[in-house]
Each structure stands twice: as structure tokens, then as C-alpha cells.
């Protein structure tokens, strides 16, 4: 069961890919539904419309569910991981790159890191 949930949580795609996937399955299912109604009108057989929609659902499964490479073309650029404990060395080095984080907080972190022992600061970080 754990393995199954791990398997199902795999295959992550980026935000643009999610948008694209939604467009693809909406289009596929809409077109297959409309086409299958036309086919069943032509052949005078009602079950054809259900077979048609079932085929459309299977096709959209194949198109959307696996994490195809086209869904991962625009990966998100996350900020680099910073550990509060090692702020004195690494954070000051990368402080110039961080545009979103205000500088004052950085200063506070550095002061806290300087004042308190390293182990306690790491505990606070885990709780957060």
C-alpha cells in the first residue's frame, strides 16, 4: 500500500505543464463526445456513443497521466536552500542573490545565530 501511494505521488509536472494537461484532456473529451454522438446518429446505434466516449477517456488517460517531457519544460526556479544555523558562512555569501528576502531579516538571523548556540537554533528551524 505504501509502495502504491509512493508510486501515485510520483510523476510531478510543473505549473505550465498542468495548464497544458488540463487543456489537452478537456479538448480530447469534448471532441470525442461530440464525434461519438454524430457517429451514433449515423449508425442509429446508441451504444456507439458510449464506446466513443470511452475511447476518448482512454486516450486522454494516455495523453495526460504519464509525466511526458512536454509537461516539464518550464521548471520552477526555487530559491536555494538555506539553513539558519550556517547563516554566518553561507547566508552572507548568498545574500546578494536573494532579492525577495528583505535584508533586515537576514541581519536578525545572523545576530541570532551569533548569540545562541547552534543546536538550539536548528531545533527552532525544525519546528517551523
Amino acid at each position: 500500500m505504501d509502495q502504491l501511494t509512493k508510486l501515485l505521488e510520483k510523476g510531478q509536472i510543473d505549473l505550465k505543464g498542468q495548464q497544458l494537461a488540463e487543456k489537452i484532456y478537456t479538448f480530447t473529451l469534448f471532441i470525442s463526445g461530440a464525434l461519438s454522438i454524430l457517429v451514433s446518429i449515423y449508425f442509429n446505434e446508441i451504444m456507439y456513443s458510449f464506446y466513443g466516449l470511452g475511447i476518448g477517456l482512454a486516450v486522454s488517460w494516455v495523453l495526460v497521466i504519464p509525466p511526458w517531457p512536454c509537461f516539464n519544460k518550464n521548471p520552477l526556479n526555487w530559491l536555494p536552500v538555506q539553513s539558519v544555523g550556517a547563516a554566518a558562512t553561507s547566508a552572507s555569501a548568498s545574500a546578494s542573490k536573494k532579492s525577495q528576502v528583505p535584508e533586515e531579516e537576514d541581519d536578525d538571523d545572523e545576530k541570532a545565530a551569533g548569540g545562541v548556540k547552534q543546536t538550539t537554533v536548528e531545533d527552532v528551524d525544525d519546528d517551523n
Partner: peptide, 8 residues
């Protein structure tokens, strides 16, 4: 839409 389960 993030992982396989959500897409299914």
C-alpha cells in the same frame, strides 16, 4: 494535476 494520482 501535480502528480499522477491527482491527474487520474
Amino acid at each position: 494535476m501535480y502528480n499522477v494520482l491527482q491527474r487520474i
